[in-house]
Amino acid sequence: MKSPATETVRRFPILWLVAGFGLWSLTFLTLYMVLTLGCAFSWHMTDHAFGLSLQRIVLVTLALLACIANIGMIRLYRRSELHERRDTIGVAADRLNIVALFCIIFTFGPVVALSPCH
């Protein structure tokens, strides 16, 4: 049985065009919000495993999850009817998902190194 989300995407394949960057947007908002939250509650001042702060651990985890979700999305898309059609929209959706993955890595890569609250 197909999930409601899968069924919606099947009925409106145009949604694949915005899936990757939709994830990028969601990651952007989430990371910025968690960063704000962590700074307010001094998560960056706490020491956890390997000398990493709670702030760093949470941010890196979220960024990694976004990458994994995007890769999963690309794989899922490549099994969809739209991808099999290989028309302009099908190819565009594939490219957009890949570009979104690149954007996630480029935009949120700094979570591994930069000082979070200064």
């Binding site: 915005v18 960057f21 947007s25 952007f28 190819v91 565009a92 490219r95 957009l96 570009v99 954007c103």
Partner: peptide, 18 residues
């Protein structure tokens, strides 16, 4: 590059919000 332009326009649309 009709397809590439469609991809670019959608990407600009999203990125401009970041």
């Amino acid at each position: 590059g009709y397809g590439a332009i469609v991809v670019a326009a959608i990407a600009v649309g999203f990125l401009s919000f970041g």
